[in-house]
Design a protein around this nucleic acid. Structure first.
Ligand code: FES
Ligand code: FES
Lengths: 144, 144
DNA sequence: TTAATAACCGACTAAAATAGTTTACTCTAT
DNA sequence: ATAGAGTAAACTATTTTAGTCGGTTATTAA
């Protein structure tokens, strides 16, 4: 299951993606419109900022805005920041690899072999889908 | 991440799949060979039995064996028993659907739209891969 | 028929991950 | 100066996962 953290992150980025040409938006405003606990969202946006996705400005009139084109922010990158690995077994993870403590020898593990395929299929979609894509998918769903 | 429960379930079914023509195998033997906590494995095998995948026999000389062809036991069915939903968001689950409490209207949700695609890709692999496939993949990995 | 074996069952506990909250600090515009 | 708004670390609560415990029931073999 996707964590709430990841879901909130995507929602925040989508809102900021629709806010591109306007002045920065405050955490409290995002939190209110999406009904996300403010302090929790604060942590999440900070992570995204430290990862380079967001620009932030302190003080009056400050807030957050996207630091790059929403077409270039892909779900896979967000999920790696908020949830960590994409793969369902640690031994199949590209960015968070570690040995499975339950399996004796990973090179001949049939489970790993299957879940590498699952990872590839998932990764293909998540690394092709951007915040801009989510926004345009929502548009298509509203006006079919 | 795949739970240990699911991983243990697959491992147990693989062992039993290799044991098809022999007398039933005891929990304790499976637990020892795969280093799975016995009492935990007991629960898991019981679930698989109640779902109709295993045959069990009590008393001396008893144990567990597969109740059907390993070619007909697919990962998707096992995972649904041990972990529940395949989809990463509840609103995209076929067998364990429920509303997302974070999203206002599911019909126009862009996140859901993407994760339905992810579910389909995952589901395709998991519903095509059987215990027999895992066994033969392991053979291929051992003798390339 | 009794003892041993092995699955069955429900309730309990421990540990880890997730989802937050609290408190205090720093920067910026007015 | 002061109010607005992000930064940061530490703390707490809740939920999920991963087990454990103690006893019951069915089957076989001596
Ligand atoms: S080695 Fe990772 S699943 Fe077996
Ligand atoms: S409705 Fe389920 S992710 Fe939005």
């Amino acid at each position: 299951m996707l964590s709430k953290k990841t879901k909130y992150a995507i929602k925040a980025l989508v809102i900021l993606g629709k806010n591109m040409d306007q002045p920065p938006m405050q955490i409290s405003r995002i939190a209110e419109t999406e009904r996300i606990p403010k302090k929790f969202l604060e942590q999440i946006l900070l992570d995204l900022r430290n990862a380079g996705f967001l620009y932030s400005k302190k003080g009056a009139g400050g807030g957050y805005s996207l630091n790059r084109d929403p077409k270039e922010i892909f779900l896979v990158s967000i999920m790696r920041i908020t949830d960590g690995p994409i793969a369902m077994v640690p031994c199949a993870s590209l960015n968070f690899y570690h040995k499975c403590d339950e399996c004796h020898q990973e090179t001949t593990c049939g489970i790993r072999d299957v879940f590498v395929d699952v990872r590839d299929a998932t990764l293909k979609i998540l690394s092709e889908t951007s915040i801009a894509d989510i926004i345009s998918r929502e548009q298509s769903l509203i006006h079919p």
